[in-house]
Amino acid sequence: MAETVAARPVAAEQLAVRAPRWAVLGVLFGLLSVAAIALYGPIGVSTTYPRLIGAIMSALAPGAAASNPYITKVGGLLKPETMLVVGLLIGGFLARRLSGEGKAPAMERVHAEERTPARRYLNAFMGGVLIIFGARLAGGCTSGHIISGITQLAISGMLFAAGVFGAGMLTAKLMKGGN
């Protein structure tokens, strides 16, 4: 009995050395993306944001919502993608709670200029504006265009990824690190 208990952590440790965490998680995420395409459709996140705006507008100003070409294009919130976004919130909560990592930091200082929390929050906010505006311009985000798009061999996903990593790496380089 004592022997098996002792043997288990060693085996787990050896496996962890052989397969880094990103590799195990990458295989699992790849299988999950296949499962989504088999069950209902490719994973995607960013359309939910304008659908939320559409739902709010439909409640407050139905006429304006009905005459907005983009709101009619993206349609209502009753979609698997909306549920996926709800799932992301639950998944993040569960993973943090069950991992034993303790409380998540309120923020991480990722740029040298983020000397105050307010500056960090402003950068996160501005980043949020740009990622959703950019994703809607392109018709997808990291999930819909890069993961699902390239998985389906779409040229649009590859073009979007080139833009994202090109501009992302340049922005990260121009802004000094926060350590």
Partner: peptide
Amino acid sequence: VLGGGLVFGVGFGLGGYCPGTCVVGAGEGR
């Protein structure tokens, strides 16, 4: 697609979040 990718990339570099990971981060309590 390319223009949107470039705008997205600047936002990704500035904030460090993408449309899905910020929801995961919010679930974590960030």
